[in-house]
Structure formats: C-alpha cells, structure tokens
Design a protein around this nucleic acid. Structure first.
Lengths: 138, 138
DNA sequence: TACAATTATAGTAACTATTACTGTTATTAT
DNA sequence: ATAATAACAGTAATAGTTACTATAATTGTA
C-alpha cells in the first residue's frame, strides 16, 4: 500500500469524487471520467475506487440497491435512501454512535462500529407527491 | 399476491428458515432443502424467499458481504456481522428506533425507517484470538 | 372424481455488478 | 537514460440473482 504509484486517472477519479455529494456508483464515476479520459476502463475505475477506500480516503456504501456507492466524505455522517427515486442523500444530524455502546452492553463480542441507513421519501419526491395529491382533488 | 398458490417447496423453505437463527443465504437454504427435495431449483429458492419477504414473513439482510441473507424473525431486532468469520448474529438489545426521530428532526423529507448493522468480532472469534495471543507468549 | 384454469416448478439461459487476467504504457528510482 | 515496477486499456471470467419455457402441481368447479 506504501508502493502505490501516482496515476492521472486515479487523481481524476479522486477529484470528481471530492467535488460531488451525489454518492455515485462506479458506473457513474466512469461516465464522468470519460469526458477527461475517453479511453479509461471501467476496471480502472473500480480498482481505484477500491484503492481510495483501502487508503481511507473514501467510503463504500452498500445500501441495498445492488450497486455500491462511493463517498469522499469520510467524516462521521449518515445516509438516507429515497424509496421513490433511489437517490442517496447525506443527513445532517447529531451523532448516534452511542448505539454501539447499547449494542455492546449485552453482547459477548466486540463492537468496532456500525452502519445505519435511513429510508423514506426525500424532500424532492415529497413535494412531487403533494402536487399529485392536489391534482387528484381537482 | 392474494393469488399465491400453496407449494410444498415453499413450505419447506419457510420451515427451514423459521427453524434457524443463522441468517442463511439463498445458496445455504438451497443446499438444505435439497435433502428434502433433491431436484429443487435454485431459482425456486430465490423466488420463494423473495415471496416470503414480499408477504412480510421474512426480511432480507444486505449486510455488505455480496450475498443477501434471510431471516424469518420480522420483529424489531438488530444484526451483527463478524469481521473475522463473516457470521451474521442477532443482537439482543434495547430498541434504538429513537434514531429515526433524530434523523428526521433536521431533514426536509420523511423517514420511514432505518437499518443498522453492527460490525466487530464475535464471541467465538474473540476467544480464538485470545488463545492465539497466549500461544505467541509462550 | 374429473376436468379446466392457473400458478409453481425444474432446468437453463441471461443479466448485472464486479473482479481477474494480459500485454502495453506510464511512473519512479537509480 | 535506463531499468524496475505499478497502472493502464481491453477483455474475459466470476458471482449472485433474475428471467424464460415447457412440464407438473394446485385449486376451483361441475
């Protein structure tokens, strides 16, 4: 891991990921990087995304939609998945890491951490729903 | 969904799932049901597991190891994944559903629920580690 | 019980996300 | 400049899962 060579492709991936809060999948990263490096390979994108995760520069989100999502924000924060549009959003909220202590208190093993995903309807889909409700009333 | 016909295969899957707390994958369910129905198809296992989930009789766990796990216990409880052996364990602990209110308080959308996975070392692996530490000391 | 209608099955093919392989190219150290 | 090595593009392979199809099982009705 100390023997990781620089590569322009990886830095382009890093910069794209650092500049978005959209939690893109590898495929989405791939299609964006193609505008800079038209010949980049999807395998290169996967390898570098995983490398960034291994190095602790990004996190991988497995939120149950069949695709991994990536996030350059490694600080403690939480994610929301909209059941309607599928978008993954950041949640700005107080830390809930006390749940690890709750879990550990009556458990014979060791809790190193936890991952929480919140589900529901995102603000954008919620306002669309309201519009449709209004239409139905007319 | 009201037009679901009885099938012996599905009931065998249901009974196996109801009788274990091991959170088996579809492949594991498949190999167990084969002892009763040697010709059962893996597709049948997948279809019926998903049907049980749709009907609310089981839940699907996507805990990040690449395979979905299934659980016949639909009551509110939490899961732990051992980083060492990969086993999925039930955690007996107080409800943490207050985190949904924490998430919703500063969010413009609607929170319907959340899923939390705890990670660490399970009791069995923890005791193995201790044995190895002891060996290294000698 | 027989029969028609319909859903489920086994077996197989297809699909999606991801990883592995291979010969060539880029980066780095000397 | 050159040698060593890691990364690349392109492609093949893998794993988990879903879709398709002809046959079999289940269910409602006479």
């Amino acid at each position: 891991m100390a023997n990781a060579k620089y590569s322009r492709q990886r830095e382009a991936i890093r910069e794209y990921l650092a500049g978005t809060h959209s939690h893109p999948t590898a495929e989405v990263v791939y299609s964006h990087i193609q505008s800079i490096y038209p010949n980049i390979s999807l395998g290169t994108v996967y390898r570098n995304l995983n490398l960034l995760v291994e190095q602790g520069d990004a996190i991988k989100l497995t939120c149950g939609d069949g695709m991994d999502h990536f996030d350059y924000d490694t600080s403690e924060h939480y994610h929301f998945i909209c059941k309607s549009c599928g978008n993954v959003l950041d949640l700005t909220m107080d830390s809930i890491n006390h749940i690890n202590a709750i879990a550990e208190s009556s458990f014979g093993g060791k809790i190193d951490g936890s991952v929480t995903y919140f589900y529901g309807i995102c603000p954008a889909c919620l306002s669309k729903e309201k519009k449709n409700d209004f239409k139905e009333e007319e």
